[in-house]
Write a protein that binds this DNA or RNA. Structure first.
Lengths: 190, 190
DNA sequence: CAGGAAGTCTAGCGGCGCTAGAATCGACAC
DNA sequence: GTGTCGATTCTAGCGCCGCTAGACTTCCTG
């Protein structure tokens, strides 16, 4: 049984190696540079090995995205925890969200604009994703008044997502991003 | 001089043919189906002809996007014109925006999530795009109060864009889209 | 130490965006 | 009418992509 255990352990390590290599390559050169050949080279195995771990390139991106959900959840939790009051919490969480998107654009893309074969608005969604959304929801809760909390949170999320994607693709004036963020959060704080 | 005129006319017609074929193919089968080979087949010319009109596939998508700007601008203008008061105008314009994205997803993608080699937030942006944004701005103007109009409009746009993209990629509960839209517009109407 | 399953690799398929150079077309001079 | 020559269009192919069949190697097991 021990031999099989070692094999499974090594296999799991290699799977992490693949995910890490994909994430690093995407973050340093963009997702277009993440090809199966390049990735195989990076992990020092041949291409077909990738397919023994993942169904295809999309599944690798999805795995990277799941890692990202944990990262952003941690960031949002820290931001909310360090805030003094409800309005400060919303500001902190919104700012942290925008900062995450700004600092880790490739990861953000995998999570929110590319990989689509992941369940989202459902109980089967990755726990880390549910937790990240939960942080947003808890930040919104004290300011929700009589609006439906879930819907209001989704709407705020949309606003944040729109801000970061349109800005990063050069469709909005970058220099006004802070003011837009402040404006958006203000509209959800009353 | 007349022969050359005819040639230029025919050339312009063929260029329109390419753009139309690309748009129709994208709308019916998605942008992944729009390959240069398929497009060449569709217009009954060989592949290199495409490159005598456009620098590459991205430029074709950009041309399709520019057509889309005119479409959405017309839609937003009609919506705003038919509204009774300022708040109704904002609702009408926001609803028209979401409807456009819903009904013409491929076109919307080309305009707002894919082709990036177009100038946006600048005087060199395509006139139709500036007009579309202008419609949003005029709908926002009466409700702007002391906020900077341009920035507020960009923020509303972000909200709309986030709503439609997250919903269409399955990241938000589709059945709550109307309520989210109402909520967003409400937050910009006070 | 032989047999065989598990694991990995080599090689290749069909398709992509794009382009060099051959072939064809068509307006003009004679 | 016909030959010339520039403009136009096509054929063919490059290097890359995601993905996979089947050969080969490795290593546990009896």
């Amino acid at each position: 049984m021990s031999i099989q255990a070692r094999r499974e352990r090594e296999r799991a390590e290699r799977e992490r190696l693949i995910i890490t290599a994909a994430r690093e390559l995407a973050e340093s050169e963009g997702w277009d540079a993440v090809t199966t050949r390049r990735l195989a080279d990076e992990i020092e195995y041949s291409q077909p090995v990738l397919y023994s771990h993942f169904k295809g390139k999309d599944a690798i991106m999805a795995a990277v995205a799941v890692e990202g959900f944990a990262d952003i959840a941690a960031g949002l939790r820290a931001a909310r925890a360090s805030a003094a009051g409800p309005r400060q919490a919303l500001t902190a969480v919104g700012t942290a969200y925008a900062a995450f998107a700004e600092e880790r654009p490739a990861l953000y893309d995998a999570m929110f604009t590319r990989a689509v074969d992941l369940p989202f608005a459902s109980p089967e969604a990755p726990p880390a994703l549910r937790e990240a959304f939960g942080e947003l929801r808890e930040a919104v809760r004290p300011l929700a008044r009589d609006d439906d909390l879930e819907t209001l949170t989704e709407t705020l999320w949309s606003g944040l997502h729109g801000l970061v994607t349109l800005t990063r693709s050069g469709r909005l004036r970058r220099e006004a991003q802070e003011r837009r963020l402040a404006l958006l959060l203000d509209r959800f704080s009353r």
